[in-house]
Computed example of a mutant assay.
Amino acid sequence: MSVRALLERAVGTVERWQLLDAPGYQVEHGISLTFLLAGRYARPLQDLLHGVWLGHPLHPFLVTVPIGSWSAAALLDGLDATGRGGPGAGQAARTVVGLGIAGAVGAAASGMTDWQHAHDEARRVGLVHAALNSTALALYAWSFADRGRGRTVRARVTAAAGYAVVLTSGYLGGVLSYRHRLGVDHSAAGRSPRTFTPVARLADLPDGEPFGADVDGVPVVLVRTDGAVRAVSGRCPHMGGPMGEGWLHRDELVCPWHGSRFDLDTGEPAQGPATAPLPCYDTRISDGAVEVRRRARWRSPTAITTEEEASR
């Protein structure tokens, strides 16, 4: 059996392992309680850990710190063990192990904040991923302590074991990103119409309420307020939630699944967990029909066509 087949079988086993559901929900409740205890600081803290301020999930940035640091530690340990690292190799290895531990704590906080919104198979894979990372962190903490006590050989062994666990966990992290698409933009802007295309009658749009529609198989949401019609993608960038079932909050469109809020003029997330902008569309009104057109993916205000402008 090939390596790929073995890995696929292992991942499939984890994805089907319903025994993980009960502890997974307990962990999720624990995360929610932690943020609840933070009171008014909960939302800013969540947005910080999601990476809303960055326009990109924070977790992938932070995981490079422990992986890079512990990779450097493995190299330094090898040089030190063979006598080729010089007098400072052992101390340098301890320093980068400590740096990796600090980075791993931050990566764990951001990762768990993202994971709490996962479902089904992704939730199970994420739980195992977190368990492996926690094991690796414990091994490296043990190694760091042993290095300070002069127990060099045992410190190298526990670090090597931790590195093997990190590599295994990293594979599951790839499964979460590339198969289950956690942290990936789920909006449908890539298949949007390139030319103005009718999507709804202006008379059918309620004032101040999201109106879900479909244009060439692509879901969009139209919002008519104060004589203006604005259009955004019908899929939330976070997990593909149906934005047409959302609602307005202070002129921001709220995702009904996880509560992400988006500015209707720019598409920028005003509140996570979404970090990518909600694609916006140019709009115009022709013969009483609202038409939309794909807009370039640079950050600029959405074109708004008012009824007064359309009548000129």
Rank of each mutant, 00 (worst) to 15 (best):
residue 246 G to R: 05
residue 224 R to W: 09
residue 195 T to P: 08
residue 297 R to C: 11
residue 234 G to Q: 00
residue 36 L to Q: 12
residue 298 W to P: 00
residue 118 A to P: 03
residue 4 R to Q: 14
residue 280 C to P: 06
residue 129 H to C: 05
residue 9 R to P: 01
residue 84 R to A: 13
residue 152 T to C: 03
residue 199 V to C: 01
residue 151 R to C: 00
residue 17 W to V: 00
residue 147 R to N: 06
residue 44 P to C: 00
residue 309 E to T: 12
residue 140 Y to I: 04
residue 137 L to N: 06
residue 90 G to Y: 09
residue 194 R to S: 13
residue 107 A to G: 12
residue 102 A to V: 15
residue 48 L to H: 11
residue 215 V to Y: 07
residue 89 A to N: 02
residue 176 L to E: 09
residue 66 P to I: 05
residue 233 S to C: 12
residue 185 D to H: 04
residue 146 D to A: 13
residue 110 S to V: 01
residue 258 H to C: 08
residue 255 C to R: 05
residue 249 H to A: 15
residue 197 T to S: 10
residue 281 Y to P: 03
residue 139 L to T: 02
residue 299 R to S: 14
residue 36 L to R: 13
residue 83 G to Y: 03
residue 70 W to E: 09
residue 2 S to I: 10
residue 296 A to R: 15
residue 216 D to A: 15
residue 220 V to N: 06
residue 108 A to P: 00
residue 126 G to Y: 04
residue 55 G to F: 07
residue 70 W to R: 04
residue 129 H to Y: 06
residue 81 A to H: 12
residue 156 R to N: 00
residue 191 R to G: 12
residue 223 V to Q: 05
residue 45 L to D: 05
residue 297 R to F: 11
residue 288 G to L: 08
residue 238 H to G: 04
residue 176 L to Q: 10
residue 17 W to D: 04
residue 175 V to P: 00
residue 259 G to T: 13
residue 120 D to E: 15
residue 197 T to V: 07
residue 219 P to T: 04
residue 124 R to S: 11
residue 180 H to E: 09
residue 215 V to D: 07
residue 205 L to G: 02
residue 206 P to A: 07
residue 189 A to K: 14
residue 12 G to D: 02
residue 65 V to G: 03
residue 75 L to D: 10
residue 169 S to P: 07
residue 254 V to D: 01
residue 203 A to V: 12
residue 178 Y to L: 10
residue 91 Q to N: 13
residue 173 G to I: 07
residue 136 A to C: 04
residue 267 G to P: 10
residue 290 V to G: 04
residue 298 W to A: 08
residue 196 F to W: 08
residue 179 R to V: 11
residue 214 D to W: 15
residue 193 P to G: 03
residue 200 A to Q: 09
residue 226 D to G: 10
residue 26 Q to Y: 11
residue 189 A to I: 12
residue 128 V to E: 07
residue 2 S to D: 14
residue 158 T to P: 00
residue 289 A to Q: 13
residue 72 A to G: 12
residue 83 G to T: 05
residue 58 L to K: 03
residue 266 T to H: 08
residue 304 I to S: 13
residue 205 L to A: 02
residue 29 H to T: 15
residue 35 F to L: 02
residue 64 T to G: 11
residue 42 A to V: 01
residue 246 G to T: 02
residue 139 L to Y: 11
residue 217 G to T: 09
residue 20 L to G: 00
residue 194 R to F: 07
residue 242 P to S: 06
residue 92 A to Y: 03
residue 114 D to W: 02
residue 166 V to T: 13
residue 279 P to Y: 02
residue 24 G to S: 04
residue 267 G to A: 10
residue 267 G to R: 11
residue 217 G to F: 10
residue 171 Y to Q: 01
residue 107 A to T: 02
residue 194 R to Y: 06
residue 172 L to F: 10
residue 244 G to P: 06
residue 49 L to W: 08
residue 18 Q to N: 14
residue 306 T to Q: 03
residue 1 M to D: 10
residue 304 I to F: 07
